Simulated scan of single mutants.
Amino acid sequence: MAVYVAQTRDDITDTQLQDILTRLRQVPAKATTRRTRTGFLIVTWAETGPLLEAELARSEHLVRVLPESSSFPLAAREYRPEGSVVRVGAVPVGDGRPVIIAGPCSAETPEVLLETARAVRAAGADMLRVGVFKPRTSPYSFHGLGPDGLAMLRDARAETGLPIVTEILDVRDIDRVADAADLLQVGARNMQNFTLLTELALTGRPVLLKRGLSATVHEWLNAAEYLLAHGNDHVILCERGIRTFERATRNTLDLNAVPVVKHLSHLPILVDPSHGTGATRYVPPMSAAALAAGADGVIVEVHPRPAQALSDGDQSLDLPEFARLATNLRAIGEALGRGRVAAEPELVELA
């Protein structure tokens, strides 16, 4: 399969564009177009690479054709060498200043969620992560509050002003989850749920795409390509650990993936050391290592009383632990010359 990305002239007419697409179909090739600030972008692919390349070369209305280099041309660094910045509410991700996303694994009660939200905001978090739909290995585990928990997310956002990050599992829930959240998370188990990715792309809302349990970097970037190819440029990647033979930690947090992704792709990338290690004691050092590796931020689990958490208490920081982590990450960000990490903390007493 040969894949090419072509940029048209900025003064191309609709008739000229349709003529290009007609000739591509005769190769035969498939193509999709997207309007850009300077004309149109044409992504085209065919089994007959030389014929497709020749057809693209003969068009006077194309100013740039990226050669066949990967199966994820829109996610590739060559497409946007300067890198992408994705805005989640008022928070930019990928502009060089690392961000911190924090919150409980699951929404449990309004009181616990608001207690956590206020505390992480006070410590300097940029966004609040919280799950209401939870994919669990066992059918008997706590699977979240479901639709009943969405009102709690809206209340937490209204109370703190923090953008909400939450996971979505089913295309049938897209509209109601998008109403309560600012960054829609695709979890590891759904990384290659291409129907879900396609439908999420059509919303135009920012998407956080976690790496699959055993996915290669190229498979991960191809999953991101589904979002990009269907018109959603607001994609953030998240390394959350992969499954290996090592059992000392819940997963193996692959920090190699951070510089690899930065080399291959323009998309911003976060790291989740909570799921990557599965143990509270390892979250602070791996958060620091993530920033040192070049990550655009971290997403960590925080709970006021981890021992009482309904899910993932073993990997959740308590409130004072998170406050210390946020302070340390700010210092690391400054040392790396990447500006402050998150907002300056409010001067409040943590219980």
Score class of each variant (00 low, 15 high):
268 P>D: 06
272 D>G: 06
270 L>A: 04
210 K>I: 06
262 K>W: 08
253 L>M: 12
259 P>G: 07
248 A>N: 14
227 L>G: 02
227 L>T: 01
247 R>H: 14
233 D>F: 00
240 R>Y: 08
277 T>V: 11
249 T>F: 12
213 L>T: 14
239 E>C: 05
277 T>A: 09
256 N>R: 15
281 R>A: 15
246 E>D: 15
272 D>P: 01
228 L>M: 12
212 G>N: 02
258 V>R: 03
207 V>Y: 01
280 T>Y: 11
206 P>D: 04
227 L>D: 01
246 E>A: 14
258 V>N: 02
222 N>Y: 07
219 E>C: 13
215 A>D: 05
252 T>E: 08
254 D>V: 10
268 P>W: 08
252 T>M: 11
213 L>R: 14
276 G>P: 03
262 K>R: 15
230 H>F: 13
235 V>M: 08
273 P>I: 12
227 L>M: 01
238 C>P: 07
236 I>C: 03
234 H>E: 14
257 A>P: 05
232 N>V: 03
265 S>I: 12
252 T>Y: 10
211 R>P: 02
219 E>S: 12
256 N>E: 13
256 N>F: 15
278 G>N: 07
264 L>S: 07
245 F>N: 04
272 D>C: 03
260 V>N: 08
207 V>P: 02
243 R>Q: 13
234 H>A: 13
255 L>H: 09
211 R>I: 06
229 A>H: 13
230 H>L: 03
218 H>P: 00
266 H>C: 06
214 S>A: 15
274 S>F: 02
226 Y>T: 15
255 L>F: 09
224 A>W: 00
242 I>P: 03
209 L>P: 00
272 D>A: 01
263 H>I: 05
222 N>R: 15
243 R>D: 07
265 S>Y: 11
259 P>E: 12
211 R>Q: 07
277 T>S: 14
247 R>Y: 11
262 K>Q: 13
230 H>P: 02
275 H>T: 06
226 Y>P: 07
241 G>C: 05
229 A>V: 12
222 N>T: 15
238 C>M: 14
267 L>I: 10
238 C>N: 11
237 L>P: 01
232 N>I: 05
281 R>V: 14
206 P>L: 08
242 I>N: 02
253 L>W: 03
260 V>C: 11
241 G>Q: 09
260 V>M: 13
263 H>N: 14
252 T>W: 08
216 T>R: 12
233 D>G: 02
212 G>I: 00
263 H>L: 14
220 W>N: 10
255 L>G: 05
246 E>R: 13
231 G>K: 08
235 V>H: 02
279 A>S: 13
242 I>V: 15
230 H>W: 09
237 L>E: 04
210 K>A: 04
258 V>P: 03
209 L>Y: 03
262 K>M: 04
259 P>W: 09
278 G>E: 07
258 V>E: 02
236 I>L: 13
225 E>N: 12
238 C>Y: 10
208 L>N: 02
217 V>F: 09
212 G>H: 00
277 T>E: 09
219 E>R: 10
221 L>F: 05
245 F>Y: 15
255 L>M: 09
211 R>H: 07
207 V>R: 00
268 P>R: 03
210 K>C: 00
257 A>F: 09
248 A>W: 12
269 I>S: 10
279 A>V: 15
248 A>C: 07
257 A>L: 11
278 G>L: 12
248 A>R: 14
266 H>M: 09
274 S>G: 01
215 A>G: 04
219 E>Y: 11
209 L>H: 07
208 L>T: 01
210 K>T: 02
246 E>H: 12
